[in-house]
Design a protein around this nucleic acid. Structure first.
Lengths: 260, 260
DNA sequence: TTGGGCAAATGGTCTGATTATTTGCTAGTA
DNA sequence: TACTAGCAAATAATCAGACCATTTGCCCAA
């Protein structure tokens, strides 16, 4: 018996009419909302496994197709991860800032946003967090940064320096502010850059010796808790990015390889 | 003939082995990637309509279920919008920062991110962009802000002030920086706040007369291009949010109603 | 000219089946 | 006993063909 969406509540809600919208549409969406709620309420925590598709069919009283569409949406939203095979199924995942940033980066590349726009936002943000970084950086933070600088210098010599390494450095600096929201945002900035670089096949080394040395100096300034010096270095460092971008005729994201 | 995912490439790629992952899985994902690419390349622009489900089935040589799952993912990603009925179908949408922020907000509330974290990030960002705002705000920007302040004051008197209004004001201020990246990020900050407020059923007026007056003063300072004054006002304004948040025992996002 | 109604297009859903993959257990062998 | 090969079960991925609900546009009648 193929039933249409007319009785879309599918036994949910039932007697009480406290539905927010007039949504008599899309059973799968109702399922998504239920699961979402369970996750928000903490009744489902990362690592938990949802019932199998067939179980969910029975519990919701819908067909497998509908359940699968709901799972697809949940997966695309970064809430669950689906594994096949025995002991497989839908597992609730811990939403990482990385995962969040990915989605955001995707849309930033689509939005009408120039490389200059992104660079300017970086200027504001990465300079703005420096006081926090200088104040809060731990020995571990600094040790990590030293390693990254070291790797950068080595890669530079062997000509294998990539933008990803530069991005990793900047993100690691931001994480020294010890604020997940800030870390996520910085990650977001670098996402679209890396993405567009991959698209443009510009994996070539773009970091000059000067930029690498600035990374080194920045770590030193952070270690010495010298905010003014750190600010000066970062300003120069980012400014050169901006300048290089200005050289392009069409400074859209495709050309976001100005990081030196 | 029910064929499994063994030939999951579905005729794509074919001879050349330049697939990024080993992803021989999930035909629907391949379809998603194709459409995504078309959108990125500008071959599909907002407003365009994808072929109907049944057409896509033929073109891709897959079943409707598979196509539908791909469409679900694209829809959840905010790339297309699906309308039913004749002349319906999947339409490419302009990815707005609002649409993006929604999904993002969801994940941010789930991520281990406290209200304090978000507030601190706001401090950095909203203070950091003030120089740009003061420099670039147009008469239109200021007129819009005046309207928002007016509405806020009226709502305050009638007791109908909502957090959404405060958020709208802050976002509008950010948009006066005339940088899409910045606007989008500020919107991202406010998304999770609104969401958690709705969850906590705290739609009540939280904006004190003091906060509303600060909004008014801020607009004035922007109009006068008085950066220092604007900075002072914004600092006080956000600081009170931080202070209020500190009163909570568990300052998680559920309590992100500190905006006054 | 206008209104009603019918038909086509289209998404939403159902049913029942096959295939591929993973896991765990079992039996056979050294 | 220990180890490996292989089979069985669980599970997601997909297919095929059907029916329902909604929207749009057109045609015909008043």
């Amino acid at each position: 018996m193929a039933m249409g969406p007319s009785d879309g509540t599918a036994g949910l809600g039932g007697t009480k009419g406290l539905f927010s919208p007039v949504s008599v549409d899309r059973i799968s969406e109702v399922i998504v909302e239920q699961v979402r709620l369970l996750i928000r309420e903490g009744k489902l925590v990362p690592g938990d496994r949802l019932p199998s598709e067939r179980s969910l069919c029975e519990q919701f009283g819908v067909s497998r197709v509908t359940v699968r569409e709901a799972l697809r949406v949940l997966e695309a939203s970064g809430l669950v991860e689906i594994r096949v095979g025995a002991r497989g199924g839908a597992f609730v995942v811990q939403p990482s800032s990385e995962r969040v940033g990915k989605g955001l980066a995707e849309l930033m590349t689509l939005a009408s946003m120039t490389a200059g726009d992104v660079t300017e936002a970086r200027m504001v943000f990465e300079l703005g967090i420096l006081p926090l970084v200088v104040e809060r950086a731990t020995e571990e933070d600094i040790a990590d940064l030293r390693v990254l600088v070291e790797q950068g210098l080595n890669a530079l010599e062997s000509g294998s320096y990539t933008m990803a390494m530069s991005a990793a450095f900047h993100v690691r600096v931001a994480s020294a502010a010890h604020n997940p929201a800030i870390e996520m945002l910085v990650q977001t900035f670098h996402g679209p850059m890396l993405m567009s670089l991959q698209q443009a096949h510009v994996a070539a080394p773009l970091m000059g010796p000067r930029g690498a040395h600035e990374h080194f100096e920045l770590v030193e300034a952070i270690e010495q808790r010298d905010l003014e010096r750190a600010r000066g270095i970062m300003t120069r460092h980012l400014q050169r990015t901006a300048d290089r971008l200005a050289d392009y005729q069409d400074p859209r994201l495709e050309n976001l390889d100005g990081e030196e």
